[in-house]
Amino acid sequence: MSETAPAASPSAVPLIRCRGLERAYGTASARTVALAGVDLDVVKGERIAMVGPSGSGKSTLLHLIGAMDAPDKGGVVVAGRDLARFDDAAAARFRREEIGFVFQFFNLVPTLSSLDNVALPARLAGKGASEAQAAAQKLLDRVGLGNRAADFPDALSGGQQQRVAVARALVNEPQIVLADEPTGALDRRTGEEILALLGEVVRERGATLLMATHSDAAVSIATRLLSVEDGRITEDRALTPITAPIKEHA
């Protein structure tokens, strides 16, 4: 671990701090250890690609950081807030205000149009329909689907759906975007396009990205690479300097 966190300057307070995270699933007899003690600090603006075999614990780590799951041991502090203290409402509020999610299988709401899918988190956050839709339209334009706003998910290709999902992840201007295998369900070329898009929009907004991926291309948009195996971080290295300006955390 000698190469750990090269970009972590002493002045930068970590946006995400994970300490001693342990998480296991299943019953006592058939227990799957997903995380076996993970410590991780993430500084604002970092774009982290996590690689590792299936079942190594990448998704679990994302879910724990996203307050969608709770660790058996250890804790996660995001922007100074201890996730363990959240009740359901606080967790939900945290997810919609601080976190943007991109899923492997897009997980668009099939009964909503692209626009409404994108607008959905804004609406969940209490924004008015028109305000949310305006923001969503902007994001759709940004991901290149401005002309498909009225289309429903089943009318879109996989890549298009994932673009919508990316837009949806950003509509509430979250500090953190969590992406779980965002290219996993796409062909290679489309996957690369999505990664590029994801990298760009995250950088534009100065958001922090944590991404579980199998794709080599992910490395191209990441500033830091984590290798995860058997629930532990086995490698952690910086890739390229963070190009976007870093605002000091208040």
């Binding site: 996203g66 939900a92 969940l124 509430n172």
Partner: peptide, 10 residues
């Protein structure tokens, strides 16, 4: 997904 996007149980 909805809950991941921030919907509460309520």
């Amino acid at each position: 997904t909805l809950r991941a996007l921030g919907a509460t149980i309520a």
